[in-house]
Design a protein around this nucleic acid. Sequence first.
DNA 1: CTAGGGTTAG
Length: 829
Amino acid sequence: MLNHIHQWTRPLKRFPLKSLTPLSSLTFTKPSASASAAADTNPADTYDPAASLEILKCLKSKDLYSSSLCLKTLVDRLNSVQVDEVIGDLGAEDPELAIELFYLLKNEHGFRHSRVCSFVVAHVLAGKRRLMELRSFLRELVEEEGSGSAPSLCELLGNRFRVWESNGLVWDMFAFVYSRSEMVHDALFVLAKMKDLNIRASILTYNSLLFNLRHTNIMLDVYEEIKASGTPQSEYTTSILVDGLCRQSLFQEAVAFHQETERKGSMPSVVSFNTLISRFCEVGYVDVAKSFFCMMFKYGLLPDAYSYNILIHGLCVAGSMEEALEFTDDMENHGVEPDVVTYNILAKGFHLLGMMCGAWEIIRHMLHKGLNPDIVIYTILMCGHCQTGDIEKVSELREEMLSQGFQLNDICYSVLLSSLCKKGRISEALSLLHEMESIGLKPDLVTYSILIHGLCKQGEVQHAIQLYNKMHSKRVFPNSFTHSAILWGLSEKGTLSEARTFFDALTKSGLIKDIVLYNIMIHRYAKHGKIGEAVQLYKQIFESRITPSIVTFNSLIYGFCKSRKLAEARTWLDAINTHGLVPTAVTYTTLMNALCEEGNIRGMLEVLSEMETRAIKPTSVTYTVVVKGLCKQHRLQESLHLLDSMHAKGISPDEFTYNTIIHCFCKAQDMRKAFQLHSEMLLHNVQPGPVTYNVLINGLCVNRDLKEADRYFSFLQDQNIRLTKPAYTTLIKAHCAKGDASKADALFRQMVEKGFEISIRDYSAMINRLSRRKLTTNVKVFLRMMLSDGISLDQEICLVILNAFRGVGDLNSEFELLAVTIKHGLFPD
DNA sequence: CTAGGGTTAG
């Protein structure tokens, strides 16, 4: 039977849980008499060294597993120290059994083995050259011990195990797993100790360490050490260094290093080339990447599938789909078959361009080639259709994935969650989270961040914080994405000082250096007109040794505009260049909007042309501001022209643009043109929103017969078009102004029925208007409605109503209300 | 070394 067990070659990490099931189900040997007897007695008061000797004998004769009863005896009878001793003894005699016993006791019986015991097992594994198992074993050990554990573990390893034959191997693997578990300081400590003991580290360990240090300047120190130690390097050593230098923005050094290999007599490797191509693509230098690609041929090297995929990816991200497709053909012509990854990259490229039909075309092509779409490409498709709002297609895809035997993974769920959140459908998102958990998927940092962000955007900050705490308790730790969502939520929903407290708590430690957090805070101060505080924070950015981004400057400029300090805003705009940044459309649009508000349309247009000469593409927001400005000067024809030229330039006007221009035509009493623009919206597939309809309703109320407004309103309701509260209040106000209390009354009731939140402001607006017209019967009705709605009176409204009652001579009502007023302490002194 | 999910500004 044991032979059976020993044939299991799977890594030990997976071994424990499954090991007992087959063992205990086997019933070929009767439990020994001594074992049964021992199990019947209470272990606590019958601790018996002789019994453990018996068990050890049992073990040595490989009879341990003959029954689970025997094992239970062992567990009950021995204490940790003795178990460790048994395993230690066994390690030399029967290593396999020692390892099995170790795991069995640890995982099934909760034994905490000593470190000594663990190292025995490690040496046994090393001696047997079971390196994968050794790696996962040590990995588990260092992860349990945590960071900072290296010194004490090293001491043990150096003192008690030097004589073991495989000690050097254990040391090396020990350093390796620390590095792999991202406990870099511990790894460095182990390496230093190894140097003292004259044990050489393998290149694998060094490579892993170089990789983990690739963002830091310690990387080169480690490289020096590798050279000094004379450890033979692998081709990955070079590529990791090239990668690291690029990541530290030392591109010239990276290229020099890459070429240095040539001087040393060997060729630069394909891997090293691939790294360079990848990094140059990443920073947007696709042309440079392409020249490295071509250079490979000159060296007589053939690009592999990675080389092609990396370059094709770079081209897709840069939006050069044609070229990406050309390289795919080229790939085939050179005898490198495009693989699933290639097609996924191409599909992503189409998705980025918003061309989902292109992505589908790629799938067709794949199928034609006999390749099956994988979960990645399905995710890309889902993501694309989520963005276009085609929920139908998304659920179809989901069904198809399931029918293809793919279980949705955490990333698919995140895509779905994200699209629900963006649509504000938070409760559906939350139930999807539940679904995810119920099928055993663990939401990760991104998943939680998406939800937290969604909740904050909906104003449910408290709920978001709950989730934030939950994620903490599941040991998923927030990063700057999560923090910024919470900070944004607090600053939007809570008070500025609440947000600031959170911000200070985050930044105080000095560990979190994130410009986005500063940007959010600065923007809030700017919005509240506290430009002084904003500038203060700007200074703090430099003290914290962070680099401001263009968003930082945009927010500051916005702040100065908001505080009507346009000259200063202009100065800040000019200062952007000195920080090596380039203004964006947002920068200019902010300033233009402020000039527009100030009525300085000429100034606004000057900024627009400045923007154009600097080749910064205006967006639809920019043009909307211009439309607003032109309308202010009643230049309606020009604004219509602008609308046309927007279409021509391929910058489609959005709902805001149309709302702005429609509003202008309403103000100019040209309802015909206003409605014509509304039709044009539909024609261009721009969905009119509640604001559009409110503008139109208001236009009809002001410019036409009220009956027409009523008819349009009913028409919209019949069409099931979503209207918001202002549509109702606009119409109610118009009816009140006309003195039609009953119509106003009916509309108000409708508004209540639809479930809109009605505030004291809505009631008092209504009561005010009715009172002014001395319609006291209606006033009484509304008063009762308001009180039954749980809204209490305020002083202002009392006075208005009292006046109305007095005006019509309704003394009873006047005195009744007066009593209430006094009782509630609302009567003025 | 390549492919799928998440922040801030008008």
